[in-house]
Amino acid sequence: MSTAGPDQSTPPVGAAVPGRYELVLPPGWVRIPLREGTKEALEQVLFSHMGRVPEGIPRDDAMRFRLDMRRQLEKQARAARRNGGLDLYLPVLPRGGIFLMASFIVAEMPIGRDHTVPPEAVIAQLADDDVPGGTAGTVDVAGAPALRRAYRCALDEEKRQGALPTRRIDYVIPVPDDPGRWISINFSTPGDGDVDSEFTDVLVELFDAVVGTFRWSDE
């Protein structure tokens, strides 16, 4: 089980605002905190969880592989933190001899703090926003309404040559008893290179199952 929490803002008087969340990770996935302890978490991932390198990489190149992975993870963590990220989740152990290309980020959501608008109205408005080639609708997360948005992202080849299209799933969740405060859980994967393949569908189902374990915690 992974536990983490958004930065604390001043709650309404008398309200018991959950300070942390919990979710159950699949085997081989780890949490990288983005607000503090990021460096230590990356060290643990690289030298504890990633003791094995993928098949086909010579033993002499193992350190170079880890250094390359560290640069990629640090770059990903910096980008996530700039976008309000709280925690980055990654698969770090190979499955069937390969490393999964997938990740998800839990982040503060800059929706605004208009306390007069009920969460259901905000979710309905977000669900009505255009999602090119995708879908959006209301779902239940931790016993309350939330938004689930699914879409495909075709990257601009002129700007990011060699990058693969990705399948993306976003959840937008209100923080209970703290009107106007929201978090998002954002999943992204190129799958096996085909965003519509059965393999990619399995990764999406795995992420949805993880979000199904999401709970708020007062501890």
Results as ranks from 00 to 15, higher is better:
Ser103Leu: 13
Arg160Leu: 15
Phe199Asn: 12
Gly193Asp: 08
Leu46Tyr: 08
Phe207Ile: 01
Gly137Pro: 00
Tyr89Ser: 01
Asp194Lys: 05
Ile57Gly: 08
Val45Gly: 04
His115Trp: 08
Ala146Pro: 06
Ala163Asp: 13
Asp178Gln: 12
Pro27Gly: 13
Tyr171His: 14
Glu55Ser: 11
Ala16Ile: 04
Arg167Asn: 05
Glu157Val: 15
Ser188Glu: 15
Met50Ile: 06
Gly137Thr: 00
Leu164Phe: 13
Asp177Arg: 15
Ala144Asp: 11
Gly162Ser: 01
Ala41Trp: 03
Ser188Pro: 12
Glu157Asn: 03
Gly5Trp: 09
Leu126Trp: 02
Thr200Gly: 06
Asp87Lys: 00
Leu88Val: 06
Met50Pro: 04
Trp216Ser: 05
Thr3His: 14
Glu157Thr: 10
Arg20Glu: 11
Ala79Tyr: 04
Arg71Tyr: 07
Ser9Phe: 12
Asp129Trp: 06
Thr116Glu: 10
Ile183Gln: 05
Ala127Pro: 05
Leu203Asn: 05
Leu86Glu: 10
Tyr89Leu: 13
Val17Ser: 06
Asp68His: 12
Gln72Thr: 11
Val92Met: 12
Arg35Phe: 00
Arg181Ser: 13
Glu40Gln: 12
Ile111Asp: 00
Leu203His: 03
Ser9Cys: 04
Gly134Pro: 07
Ser2Tyr: 11
Ser103Ile: 00
Val131Met: 08
Arg70Val: 04
Val210Ile: 15
Asp201Glu: 15
Arg70Gly: 10
Arg20Trp: 09
Phe214Ile: 04
Arg181Met: 12
Leu46Gln: 03
Gly191Asp: 06
Ala4Gln: 08
Arg70Ser: 10
Asp170Leu: 14
Ala16Tyr: 00
His49Ser: 12
Thr200Cys: 14
Ser9Met: 08
Val195Asn: 05
Ile57His: 03
Leu25Cys: 09
Lys159Ala: 14
Ala121Gly: 01
Gly112Ser: 00
Arg160Met: 15
Arg148Trp: 00
Ala15Thr: 10
Gln161Val: 09
Leu155Gln: 02
Leu155Ile: 06
Asp140Arg: 11
Thr3Leu: 15
Arg167Pro: 06
Gln125Glu: 13
Asp7Trp: 00
Glu205Gln: 13
Met1Pro: 13
Tyr151Met: 14
Gly212Phe: 04
Gly37Ser: 08
Arg52Gly: 14
